[in-house]
């Protein structure tokens, strides 16, 4: 226990915690995106996937618990780091002239905190369904919860879509620094494979953004151009 505490107290220990929890969350974000993209395959695919997740029962709550813990530890630790870092350099230079740090890197704490707000809204919106409680009752012809239609219904609200786009954009900028950052922090950067991965970091983040953004954009385009896909079932 003493070792764990002193590890957490060290600067590198904290960074490892941030990196490891970040890694879990990147894994979730990637999986979540792949799952969500099934919306393009129609209500069958997505609702079956949703029902599968619901069917996990207690395991689902374990997964949710782990994710929530990761998020909380990730936030608490980064805020601790942030406080220490500010204390280490109280006086800034007269001329702000960064030579390396990307915008993503320099806005991690801001993008992170906004992402949290977005996350809370997003869970209330699509998981707890507390904003539109009537969605809880929607079922598809196979008697499964019609997640497919409520996703489309949600994104047909331009304001909600816009907020979602902003959220995933910030997520992407956060990850553009975050992905290469955990490679660095977990000590993998000196390995040959790590260098291309570091370079690829912003592209991977961009890919995640495109994946996520394609859903609201697709929904809105389908609605206004009357495309044969991404149309909700009647409720």
């Amino acid at each position: 226990m003493k070792a764990i505490i002193s590890f957490y107290q060290s600067s590198i220990g904290k960074k490892w915690i941030v990196a490891l929890t970040g890694l879990v969350l990147v894994g979730f974000v990637t999986g979540h995106m792949i799952g969500n993209l099934q919306v393009f395959l129609g209500h069958e695919a997505l609702n079956r996937y949703a029902a599968f997740l619901q069917g996990l029962g207690e395991l689902l709550w374990v997964i949710r618990g782990v994710l929530a813990a990761c998020i909380i530890v990730h936030i608490i630790t980064t805020v601790l780091l942030w406080v220490q870092n500010n204390a280490a350099k109280p006086q800034k230079y007269a001329v702000n002239n960064p030579q390396a740090g990307s915008i993503g890197a320099r806005t991690m704490i801001v993008s992170g905190l906004i992402i949290i707000c977005f996350l809370v809204f997003h869970i209330l919106h699509f998981t707890a369904l507390s904003i539109h409680p009537e969605w809880k009752l929607w079922e598809d012809p196979d008697g499964r919860h019609d997640v497919y239609s409520l996703v489309i219904a949600g994104f047909r609200n331009p304001l909600e879509s816009l907020f979602y786009l902003v959220g995933v954009f910030l997520l992407a900028t956060h990850l553009s620094h975050g992905i290469q950052s955990f490679i660095q922090t977990l000590g993998l950067r000196s390995r040959k494979i790590a260098e291309p991965l570091t370079t690829a970091s912003p592209y991977l983040a961009g890919l995640l953004f495109l994946g996520y953004a394609s859903i609201p954009v697709g929904v809105l385009l389908a609605q206004h151009l009357n495309l044969p896909i991404l149309q909700p079932l009647a409720h």
Binding site: S11, K15, Q84, N85, A100, G101, R106, T185
Partner: peptide, 22 residues
Amino acid sequence: MVKTMDAEGFGNCTNYYECEAV
């Protein structure tokens, strides 16, 4: 060395790489 570094009041590395650049 890391313990002493922390105790001296240096901040934490957040991978900006400003150090490498200068």
